[in-house]
Structures are given as structure tokens and as C-alpha cells.
Design a binder for these strands. Structure first.
Lengths: 267, 267
DNA sequence: TTGCTCCTCACGTCACGTGAGGTGGC
DNA sequence: TTGCTCCTCACGTCACGTGAGGTGGC
């Protein structure tokens, strides 16, 4: 009345192939065979197989299961305790993954920090075109990949700038400018406006000293708004970048160089 | 200012090899190469890779991830909901595994139902030898594997028998008899005592009709106590089986045949 | 005789890991 | 020149899955 391999397997909740695999790996001793060469299992095989399955289900590699099976009860229970905390870890991992899935449905929230998502929402609410918001978003994504630690400071500076009515006008004008011809005369006026605003803003910020000025705000405007690779998306923007850079004060020019160095150090 | 493969990978929490693997599988489009033949990634690659990683971490096979990525948002969110409930399932599975681990430390409790474990504890408390309790335990394990549905009824019947002081004496005597010679004259007396007790017990049970008698209790004693394969562990027990079977009443003999049929049907 | 279980190779699968051997930028 | 990153094969790994081809009990 000993068990056949399929009786053993199904009672322990594993496949027949898995039982044979455990024999091959030396985890479960080969039992005696009957007259037909069939394996016949006794009660101890049931006990061993349940042990093996329980540990394997808990994610223990079979090589480690092997060592655990013939280890002293004391170190066995220590190992089980360890596995248990690994299981707890897995559970909290899964719970985090459920949250991430929820955020995946919510759109950008998994890709960018909340503060940047809010910034983009604010722009959309201001009336900035979807295309320009998309370009902004891509810029932030790349920035987050290359220099994650500056994202937060830059986001706060941009948020502050958006609080200024004049900046909002400049930003909206720049949005419209995307589709202008590269030789449109209004690009010169817009460039001058930007540089003027940035110079004033810089004095104001340096005056208050409220936030450590990691990035020269004058440079920030030009760079953030018209960073080289973003400008590539529109001939008018590329021209706007050239015009505004040539109108920068010498002090800001050197700040721009500084910025480049910082970026390299950060990457 | 596009990303290299390692910048992309580390920002998304995957290995460089995994990114290449996703290219091979057609999950992530191959980006443009720079002058040195290096892959250069833009923001959309970050978004795609985070999507892929999130789904893969949730246990979705890559072949299915492929289909989900280019499915409509509506069916995408339906699929994500499905994955989420799969995650919930996994979490409760892990929690059950933690319980099973705890029971693994507690000994037999994973291998046998609680009622049988209690039965074995009771025997140990009675003074039955560890070896005999071990043989009993092995018998129950095999029974549970072959005919799980009869375990509960048999356990209740055995528990009832252990409530009888005379049965306990018989059981302890049988325990001692294990090491006797096969021709010991006391074996005949013990066999007669067992059959007598079983016959009386049978009348009592049939009189009360408290529990449906699935198994003739007289047969139950002989079979449970001395089931053929357990008897093999001791020459004296084998002889005790022969003696008691030959002393059974004709009615019980036919009941024994009935039992054999039931066992076959159950397996 | 048919259907079911069992047996032993031995190749397949899934999601990458891991060198092997070589090139390009600083 | 050295060290680091990148490149393309291509075999290895882990825990089995899945036939292929054959035998034994009812």
C-alpha cells in the first residue's frame, strides 16, 4: 500500500515531473522500485516532499533547500525565520507594485516626480499648447535621468517664475513662436524681452537671498526654456536661442559656462 | 544630451542586458545610434521602459507585455486591473506560505490534519513508545494520501476508542508486544482479548447509532492497529495479525472484505 | 485490445546572466 | 597608455515543461 509517484505528487501539490526533478537534484532520495520498476513511496517521502515544496514555494533556491534539509533543527529554524522575513519583504514589494500599477494608469505620475507633474499641469491650465508641454515634459524626463538631484531645485525655480505674470506672457509668446519662420522680426523683440526679464529677475533673487542660487536665474531662463536639444524641434526656437544668447550680459555668459560645468559634474 | 544605455537602465531600475533583451524581443524600439554605434535614448524610451518594467515586475510575461503596450487605453486599463487582482492573489498566497512555514517549524502540523496530530499527542501522553507512535503516524500519512476523505471519520473513531480504558490497555500491550518473539504464547491471549473487545464495542456502537458506521469497528481495530504494511515492521505483530484474523466472527470477516472494497474505491 | 500510468532520455522554455573578443572616448 | 563604457555573438542558468519512444497492469 505504498504510494505511486502521481499519488505522492498530487497529495503534496507538485507535478510528477517536479518529483523526478527533485530525485535528479538529490533533494529527495530515490525510493525502492516495485516489480515493474515503478517508484513506491512511503510516509517519509511525503514528509520530505512537503518540506521541499514549502521551502521552494517560499522562493528558496533548490541548492539551498538541499543544505537546509540536512541541517540541524536549530539552524533550520534560524533559516526558516530568515525566509519568513524574505517573504514579508516580497509582500511589501508586491504592495508597492500595486501602487505603481495604479500610478501607471494615472499617466505621468510614475515617470516624473509630483512637483514636476504639477508644473506641467499648471502650464496646460495657463493655455500652453499640448505640443510645447510635451516638449517640456521630455526635457524634465531626460534631466531626471541624468541629474536627478537638480530636478527639485529647478522645478521650484520654474514654479516661482510661473508666479510672475510677465514671465507667463513671455512663455505663452514663446509657445506661439514655435511655428514662426526663423527670420520673423518678432523673434528679435521676444529675445530682448526674455533677456531683460531675466536680468531683472536675477537682481531680485540675489537681493532676497531666499533660496540658494544654484543656477543663475538669467541663465536658467534661457537654458531651461531653450535648452539646445529642445530648440531642435523648431527652427524659430533655434533662432530665438541664438538671439537671446548674443544679448546676454557678460556676467551671465560666464554663468552659462559655469552651468555647463555643473551639468557635467552632475551626470 | 540623449541618454546612454546604462543611464537609461539605471534610471529605470533594470540591467543593461535587460534593455538589450527588450530590444531583441521587440518590446522596446531600437533607438538611433551615435557616431560610435552607441544607442542613444530620448524621453519616450524612459516612459516605455518604465511601463515594461512595471508590468514585468508585476509578473506579466514579456509576450503579453508586448500586446498590452500597443493596446487601446481602455483595454490597457482593463488588463492592468486584471494584473492588480493577480498581485492581490500573490500577496495572499505569500501570506499563506508564511503560515505554512510557521507550521513547518511546529512539526507534524503541516503533514497531518490537526485531529490526527492530537490523536498522536494523546498516545504519547498515554505512554505509547515513540517508535509505535511513529509507525501510527506513517500509517495516517499514507492513508491521507490515498483516501483523504476517510481520515476524519477514522480519526474520530480512534479517538472514541482511546476514551475506553480497556482499549488503552490493549493498545499499550500491543505496543510492548512489538519486540516479543513471533512464537510467544502471550500473542494468542492478546489476539483473543482484542477480538473480544472489538465484538463488544461493535454491539455498543450499533446500539447507540450516534455516528454513521462507515467502517465496522471490529474490523477497524484489527485493520487500523495491524494493517498489513504496518505489521511488517515487527514479526510479533505479523503473527498477532494472523491470530486475530483467524479468531474473527464470520460477520466481521465479511466486513473485512467490504473494507477492502471500500479502500480500493477510495484510492 | 484499449486506455492509463509509469519509465528514461533529451531538447525546449523563460528572462535574462555571463563571459569572449573587440572598439571608442577621455 | 589605462580604465571605463559600449558593441555583438553565443553559451549558461534555473526549475522544471514537453514531447519521443517504449513498457506494464486491468
Amino acid at each position: 500500500m505504498l504510494l505511486t509517484i502521481s499519488q505522492l505528487a498530487s497529495h503534496c501539490g507538485v507535478t510528477v515531473r517536479a518529483v523526478r526533478h527533485y530525485h535528479q537534484r538529490g533533494l529527495l532520495p530515490e525510493p525502492e522500485r516495485d516489480a515493474s520498476g515503478y517508484r513506491r513511496y512511503g510516509a517519509e517521502a511525503v514528509v520530505s516532499l512537503i518540506r521541499i515544496k514549502t521551502l521552494a514555494d517560499a522562493g528558496v533556491p533548490l541548492s539551498q533547500v538541499h543544505r537546509m534539509l540536512d541541517s540541524a533543527p536549530a539552524s533550520f529554524s534560524a533559516a526558516v525565520t530568515e525566509i519568513d522575513s524574505a517573504l514579508q519583504q516580497q509582500i511589501s514589494d508586491l504592495e508597492r507594485r500595486r501602487e505603481e500599477l495604479a500610478r501607471l494608469l494615472a499617466g505621468d505620475r510614475l515617470v516624473l516626480p509630483d512637483e514636476v507633474v504639477e508644473l506641467l499641469d499648471e502650464m496646460r491650465a495657463m493655455g500652453v499648447s499640448d505640443l510645447t508641454v510635451g516638449i517640456e515634459r521630455d526635457g524634465w524626463i531626460l534631466l531626471a535621468a541624468i541629474a536627478p538631484d537638480v530636478v527639485s531645485v529647478w522645478a521650484r525655480q520654474k514654479k516661482a517664475a510661473l508666479g510672475d505674470a510677465e514671465f507667463r506672457k513671455i512663455y505663452l509668446a514663446t509657445d506661439e513662436a514655435r511655428s514662426w519662420d526663423a527670420d520673423d522680426p518678432r523673434l528679435g523683440e521676444l529675445a530682448a524681452w526674455m533677456v531683460d526679464w531675466a536680468a531683472n529677475r536675477r537682481d531680485a533673487v540675489i537681493g532676497t537671498d531666499a533660496e540658494p542660487v544654484l543656477v543663475d536665474p538669467e541663465v536658467s531662463v534661457v537654458e531651461t526654456l531653450l535648452a539646445a536639444q529642445l530648440a531642435e524641434t523648431s527652427p524659430a526656437w533655434r533662432r530665438l536661442g541664438e538671439l537671446s544668447r548674443s544679448e546676454l550680459t557678460p556676467a551671465a555668459q560666464s554663468g552659462l559656462d559655469l552651468r555647463r560645468q555643473t551639468r557635467l559634474a552632475g551626470s
